Simulated scan of single mutants.
Amino acid sequence: MTPPNPGKASPDLDSSGSGRLAHAPADHPPMPRKKIGVVLANLGTPDATDYWSMRRYLSEFLSDKRVVDYPDWKWQPLLQLIILSRRPFKSGEAYRSIWNTEQDESPLLTTTREQTRKIADGLYEAHGDDVVVDFCMRYGNPSTDSVLRRMQAEGCERILFFPLYPQYASPTTATANDQAFRTLMKLKWQPAIRTVPAYFEHPAYLDALASSVREAYESAETPPEVLVASYHGVPKRYLLEGDPYHCQCQKTTRLLREWLGWEKDAIHTAFQSKFGPEEWVGPATVEHVAELARQGRKHIAVVSPAFSSDCVETLEEIEEEIRESFLEAGGETFTYIPCLNDRDDHIAALLSIIDNELAGWV
């Protein structure tokens, strides 16, 4: 006997397509057909670049205990009274330099929406309308809570939650999952939920990443002498407390080098975006590229394997601040290799991961 497909209409529903239960009383409300949901989760974005939009976004982001884990009595007065009185101006300026003015939104939002559309098309081709695809942001809009609730209202009794971070880190993957679980804690009827683990070792992801590097090198007027893999940094304390992120970043660089067939010194690992007085994992990208220039490496490329989409940390920090650091130290050509974004090979890799994680559901 063939087992029932969990994505198909329930045998308890009548055959009219009305969504009404076959054996329910006439006044029973219609029930949506059972579906499976896939939610792509990214970091987040401010709604606009003005002071108050930036302040709301930064307050939510920097109040997250996964991001800054200092006690509230020590951190919140400093954050609300000092940091958020100045930082929204600086961050707003950074976002304005990369803002998608045509759609009046951040590039991260634009790219995540396009990734979602392509993944939805791929899953529709494979499974029809049994699988519903959407995206959410950990900070800002569309919120995790609103997307999960909407999916449940559409009949998604099983949801695959996919944080778009190749490497696991407490301030990224864990906080995205936390937010999904907070919504479940408030629901009377919880959908079954699965979370996608780190995928930096997945062959299709590494193929896409290596292809992006090869294409950039082939199109560069002056071939880079060194590739710097720049990852978002974390306090060194996180590593000592068991967060695997630093180790997974180092392994990503090694695997990328092996996929490319390059010598060991052809790729360096560095970390960017330091915030606060603590010691962070290093070396710092902004300092490392300057040191490379002083050592006579005049032509370099930078890639960001920790980001699935280009964002302010890549389009502004790498393309402007880190580029400037290299050139001012004597460098001559600086090649930034874009994130995988909505490249077809990246979408194919994400679809392969999704299909694996949906095993037994579809």
Results as ranks from 00 to 15, higher is better:
161 F>K: 05
154 E>Y: 11
252 T>W: 00
237 R>E: 14
197 P>R: 05
226 V>N: 06
177 N>H: 10
171 P>Q: 11
201 E>D: 13
177 N>F: 07
254 R>E: 06
205 Y>A: 02
254 R>P: 00
234 V>K: 09
260 L>N: 02
178 D>Q: 13
221 E>H: 12
204 A>H: 07
156 C>W: 05
142 P>Q: 02
170 S>E: 15
143 S>T: 06
154 E>V: 09
213 V>M: 13
180 A>K: 01
248 Q>T: 14
209 L>K: 01
224 P>N: 11
142 P>Y: 03
185 M>Q: 14
233 G>H: 05
237 R>I: 07
234 V>R: 10
163 P>F: 12
212 S>C: 09
199 Y>C: 00
236 K>G: 12
196 V>Q: 05
206 L>Y: 03
148 L>F: 06
254 R>G: 02
183 T>D: 10
220 A>S: 15
256 L>T: 01
210 A>F: 07
252 T>Y: 00
186 K>P: 02
154 E>A: 14
143 S>W: 05
261 G>N: 08
229 A>T: 08
146 S>E: 07
259 W>C: 04
168 Y>E: 06
203 P>G: 02
254 R>W: 02
140 G>F: 06
223 P>C: 10
215 E>M: 10
143 S>Y: 03
169 A>K: 14
191 P>Y: 15
181 F>T: 05
266 A>L: 07
161 F>R: 03
243 D>I: 09
180 A>V: 02
251 K>G: 09
202 H>Q: 09
258 E>P: 01
151 M>K: 04
216 A>L: 07
256 L>Q: 00
196 V>R: 03
263 E>D: 10
168 Y>K: 09
241 E>Y: 05
260 L>D: 03
263 E>A: 09
267 I>N: 05
200 F>A: 01
156 C>Y: 07
186 K>R: 14
263 E>S: 10
260 L>G: 02
229 A>C: 15
191 P>A: 15
242 G>C: 10
195 T>H: 06
199 Y>A: 01
267 I>S: 05
164 L>I: 07
151 M>D: 08
214 R>I: 11
185 M>C: 11
262 W>M: 09
141 N>C: 02
171 P>A: 12
232 H>R: 00
212 S>K: 11
225 E>V: 08
253 T>M: 09
230 S>T: 03
241 E>Q: 13
177 N>L: 13
151 M>R: 04
185 M>F: 13
177 N>K: 08
216 A>P: 05
